[in-house]
Design a protein around this nucleic acid. Structure first.
Length: 259
DNA sequence: GTGGATCCTAAGTT
DNA sequence: AAACTTAGGATCC
């Protein structure tokens, strides 16, 4: 467990767990990526060049695959604050307690200890979630997604699907394998491929990215997510994943600031 | 102006 | 291709 704070000089890290390693943290956050070269190429695109003043510095995380997979299955037809609360509930109910940390941020009141500190829990293993009852999962605000999460856990825990093996496959093969899984469609598969497995040609198309592309590239014409993905891979190639991050972030920035 | 009922939307998948 | 959990904001009385 580490408390990470952004400072003008860089990231300040307060370790709460003795086995932490700075290089692993950098890799997890994507802070080891050299972004300048990618942004220089992407900046040749007029729409992205306009966004870069607000989105420059975005990196691609490298999350643990199981946690990433479950998180994005939960994300379907959901909203971002509730997704966070669901993951917090799952971890507290089925994960293991790791440490108590000083709350440098006050983003959530959940899990506050009596002394004002906050405890931290690991993301639950496939084995633990495979043994969960559906009503316990629904109590974590999973709703109709509860069966997906439990089936997913059962499949991974049984060894019928090996995420580490999928991680070694090339993009297209890994993508088809992920889409076989319950609750995983094209968009969620691309999220796992991009945020966890390091496939930077992946281009997840959610409603935000779809709106952004239709507005800034298609002259307002509406299309399908599949057509947008094909267009993006053709246009941005191995930088499609970074392009998606800037477009997503830019689309949300526009709404947030009402531009 | 306040408060409760109702409607609507939200990181898609089946 | 309609249906899906459900919290939280918007709108309406």
């Amino acid at each position: 467990v580490a408390v990470v704070t952004q400072t003008p000089e860089g990231l300040a890290v307060q370790w709460e767990h003795s086995s932490g390693s700075p290089s692993a943290l950098r890799r997890h956050l994507g802070a080891d990526q050299r972004l300048a070269a990618s942004e220089a190429v992407l900046g040749r695109d007029p729409a992205i060049r306009r966004l870069l003043p607000y989105t420059s510095g975005i990196a691609l995380m490298r999350q643990e695959p199981w946690e990433c997979l479950v998180s994005f299955v939960i994300s379907a037809f959901n909203n971002i604050p509730k997704i966070g609360r669901s993951i917090e509930h799952l971890s507290r109910r089925f994960g293991e307690r790791i440490a108590a940390v000083d709350p440098a941020d006050t983003a959530t009141e959940a899990g506050r200890l009596q002394d004002g500190r906050r405890d931290a829990w690991s993301f639950p293993s496939p084995e633990r979630l495979a043994g969960a009852h559906l009503d316990e999962l629904r109590a974590c605000m999973l709703g109709y997604r509860a069966p997906y999460v439990r089936e997913l856990a059962a499949i991974v825990a049984s060894g019928r699907v090996d995420l580490a093996a999928i991680a070694r496959l090339p993009y297209g093969t890994a993508r088809r394998a992920l889409i076989e899984l319950p609750g995983v469609g094209e968009k969620v598969a691309d999220c796992v491929l991009l945020y966890s497995l390091g496939h930077r040609e992946a281009f997840p198309v959610d409603v935000w990215v779809q709106r952004a592309v239709e507005r800034w590239y298609f002259g307002g014409r509406s299309t399908t997510p599949r057509a947008i993905r094909a267009w993006a891979i053709d246009r941005f190639g191995p930088l499609a994943g970074y392009a998606q991050q800037h477009l997503f972030s830019g689309a949300r920035w526009v709404v947030k600031t009402r531009v």
